[in-house]
Design a protein around this nucleic acid. Structure first.
Lengths: 240, 240
DNA sequence: TGGTATTTGTCCGTATGTATC
DNA sequence: GGATACATACGGACAAATACC
């Protein structure tokens, strides 16, 4: 499945920026030059550049050029960004990790759960608690709610591997949008039961809602991270 | 300075979604219909829709339509999103707030500061510590570093009001890009000196780098929030 | 099963405006 | 003023996914 032309151009430019073929603070070659190199229309290079800007690699300056503002991150940290399963994020950092399912239930959304998850009352869901070990240490505990009519046939065995791979593989679901909320919360009994918390009395909590290609929210997850192994990156542009 | 056409269309559509003229889970009118209504080209409505998708209001489904996936947030919470000064965010929530400058210094970036801020060694900066009070309570402490050659003539008096208004007003700087990193950190002596921390032993920390229209990073700020008043929202799309 | 209409996705070309140098 | 570079907008062509008959 070949990707789109603007996407290939984006990839090439991003690679050059990351490898410092184009150095930080310099200007990108002008649109005209890029059009010649990639043999495409102006719209197409502009689309690639827009994506680079959205991702924090460059910044367009009207009448002047496109400045590169890329700064490599320290790879020592564990990073969350975009839509990415924990498995993918860990693999990117070349670390080992395992998952243990400590609770697996099928239940119906009641008033209380509905308020937290925004699932309609009466929705049938799987509820899971999963402990995530990275390099042998229990660092994260997930509370997952999956709609049973979409994540069909989920089992603890699958949940110990990767729910996302199951969704995108056998079930043919394409995850498209995720909305997240980050907060810091006091630890609960469950947290201290499963995580090695040192003396922290708070956790980094990421609550997320995930939509499939049909625009249906099929997952609500609350991910509770030990503070010292949590980092989240973000990039924003002011529209003027 | 009238805004662009696609931006006005974006605003109108967003308003309709927020006011539930278009309801969640429904499809937006097709591009063809919107073109007629707004009397514009296809590219222009598509651009507006792209922006709505980036902001988590809708999700396009190939061959089908554009589904609305908007869920209103609870307004009770204090929300951080996009590039927004604290003053703007608080105003949006109709709360009162004040700022107290507890430290104001001019200094030169040394090796240690350079590592943290990524400013080159030798850069002349203002260093500030500011305590932020919302509804009378000390909730946030900021550590600001501003490049002195860009944020010219900064004074404690200006810093008690709004540095951003000063930048965009008298100095004519247009803030464009911000990169942020969120972590949870143990409290320090300075934190407990100025903030009413209850019994939390951690803080939500947002470290941000801000670039002006020339692509120069002119600000590094570490913002330390009391856990119970910190929320950060994010929205991501998987490219497929 | 197949054909047609609808709808979104990609790509191109062109014209005009505006900011920088 | 002129040259260069990015920004906005329009229109057209074809592809791909979906819906419906």
């Amino acid at each position: 499945m070949p990707s789109a032309k603007y996407d290939r151009i984006y990839d090439k430019l991003r690679e050059r920026i990351e490898n410092e073929v184009y150095k930080s603070q310099e200007l990108l070659p002008s649109e005209h030059v890029l059009i010649e190199e990639f043999d495409c229309s102006r719209n197409t290079v502009r689309r690639a550049i827009k994506q680079l800007a959205d991702d924090g690699y460059v910044q367009s300056i009207h009448g002047k050029g496109v400045r590169i503002i890329y700064q490599p991150y320290e790879q020592s940290e564990f990073m969350l960004s975009g839509i990415e399963s924990l498995k993918e994020a860990v693999a990117r950092n070349k670390k080992e990790y395992t998952t243990k399912v400590v609770c697996f239930a099928e239940l119906m959304v009641d008033d209380k759960i509905s308020k937290r998850t925004t699932f309609p009352i009466g929705t049938e869901v799987y509820y899971l608690q999963r402990v995530r070990y990275i390099e042998g240490e229990a660092l994260i505990i997930d509370h997952n709610y999956f709609r049973r009519d979409i994540v069909k046939g989920l089992t603890p065995e699958i949940a110990e591997k990767s729910v996302y791979e199951y969704l995108e593989g056998p079930l043919g679901e394409n995850i498209v949008t995720t909305k997240r909320k980050m907060t810091v919360e006091r630890i609960t009994e469950i947290d201290s039961k499963y995580l090695k918390l040192k003396d922290y009395n708070c956790l980094a909590v990421v609550s997320s809602m995930t939509y499939n290609a049909d625009g249906i929210m099929f997952e609500y997850t609350q991910s509770r991270h030990r503070p010292d192994c949590f980092t989240f990156y973000d990039q924003a542009q002011r529209v003027k």
